[in-house]
Design a protein around this nucleic acid. Sequence first.
DNA 1: CATTGATTGAACTCACGGGTTCAATTCGCT
DNA 2: AGCGAATTGAACCCGTGAGTTCAATCAATG
Lengths: 218, 218
Amino acid sequence: MRSASIGDMAQHPSAASTGRIDKRAAILDAAFQVFARDGYANAAVDVIAAAAGVAKPTVYNHFTDKQTLFREALAADAERVLGRNLAVVQRLSDGRGELRARLEDLGVRLIECYADDRSVAVRRLLCAEASTFPEIHSEIREQTGERVVAALADRFAHLVLDGTLRECDPAQAAEQFEALLAGPMEHRSRSGSRKVPAAARRAIAKAAADTFIRAYAR
Amino acid sequence: MRSASIGDMAQHPSAASTGRIDKRAAILDAAFQVFARDGYANAAVDVIAAAAGVAKPTVYNHFTDKQTLFREALAADAERVLGRNLAVVQRLSDGRGELRARLEDLGVRLIECYADDRSVAVRRLLCAEASTFPEIHSEIREQTGERVVAALADRFAHLVLDGTLRECDPAQAAEQFEALLAGPMEHRSRSGSRKVPAAARRAIAKAAADTFIRAYAR
DNA sequence: CATTGATTGAACTCACGGGTTCAATTCGCT
DNA sequence: AGCGAATTGAACCCGTGAGTTCAATCAATG
């Protein structure tokens, strides 16, 4: 038994009684973290195996090669991110309060998703390896960013129908609302690589909601 | 100090009669292209040297190592991109026509810069190697994206003073205007890795100007 | 023309990492 | 207990690429 794997098992609470099961999940998880930290090219399979508390051949037993491992790890995490985003967007329909309050709330929650470490890592990896993995770029991006905006557009379409929003193209409104959130977030995270503080995030959501209402509310 | 750098000062883009001069510029240019195409890790110095029409030791004669070469190549191209963007923003002050027309024009031109191959490559490399080159991330991003938005904010401040825009925070307005351009552009370039057609770009600029005016015009 | 310094090509060192092999071991299950 | 599949560790092969060395060459300057 490797002495290096001491703390590795501790990551997974469910790994207590895990003899040999769900090695696969552990590998995927470790792979994503290492890829996110070192980039695809710099990530060594040996390191991933160690991080997963697993021997290198085991990795190649589950995934044919490094590329496959990368694809699956990225896809898995992208799935989670997508799920959280969609859940947040769905909430908009439940809201019964003021439009402004509902939009601000939505904004804050979307920004939370956007700023999440895993989410940032997914976007970064996607962008970084877009040229070497063209397939992934289209697959994941389309099934993630695309669908979130589509879901948002759907919500907005309802708001147009019930007269809360003026007549407009819901898809465009959704695109722009997302842009009003993501753009300033990007801008903030430039100066200083530190995380954008919660207060600033609330301010961004407020500003986005304000501009959006001015442009789209009836 | 290299005495060879004497010739570097002479910015002779025409390398026709170039015996040994401005090898440096050629290397920087080739380096950027190769880095942009293959990513930092996959880019081989041998290949860069070949692309620049130069021997490998010559590369190491001008730049101590691969990292330095990367930094300088990226910085040089980021400079150009920044210059073009600032020039476009400055134009806004000259405009005498309708606010809408001026904003749409600005938008189209900014999108042009944004969609330019070199510009895309700079952003991609910056994002991709942000974790391995934290310094670059702050240096370039601050002195590029930051300054463009700042220049735009300055223009908007004038428009507030002369009553064209309502009273507002020009910095926020600038951030949002840029977001309304960049966000949808990103969104378009996701589905399909092809370039966003000119018509779609005009539509994005139009939509951005429209939303912006609704939110910020007096 | 000769000196000086940049340039060249080619070969070389060295570290790193993807992927494989294999015998020994362990696990899950009956 | 015992069987088969999965896991392990360790060594190994092999390509690749950063960075260096060196003798030969070239361009310019005095």
